[in-house]
């Protein structure tokens, strides 16, 4: 059961990461783009099991 919950959290993390990338691609302002890139980093690090 615990393993299933953990896997679901990784799926959620991937889903949110995709949403962040989608928003990054839609932005027109450089500042907002950079903000989305920085927000994305912890999601990527978790998916890669680095942090």
């Amino acid at each position: 059961m615990n393993t299933i919950v953990t896997v679901l959290y990784y799926v959620l993390t991937a889903y949110i990461a995709v949403l962040i990338v989608w928003n990054f691609l839609k932005r027109k302002s450089w500042q907002e783009e950079l903000l989305y890139v920085i927000v994305l980093i912890p999601f990527v690090l978790r998916l890669l099991r680095l942090k």
Binding site: F24, L25, W30, E33, L34, V37, I38, L40, I41, V44, L45, L48, L50, K51
Partner: peptide, 25 residues
């Protein structure tokens, strides 16, 4: 080009942090 630069900055930050966390672990 602007998006590529932003993505490159993000990638550089992620790689830098990732190496540090990998080393620590």
């Amino acid at each position: 080009m602007r998006k590529l630069v932003s993505a490159a900055i993000g990638t550089a930050l992620a790689v830098f942090a990732g190496i540090s966390f990998h080393h620590s672990r």
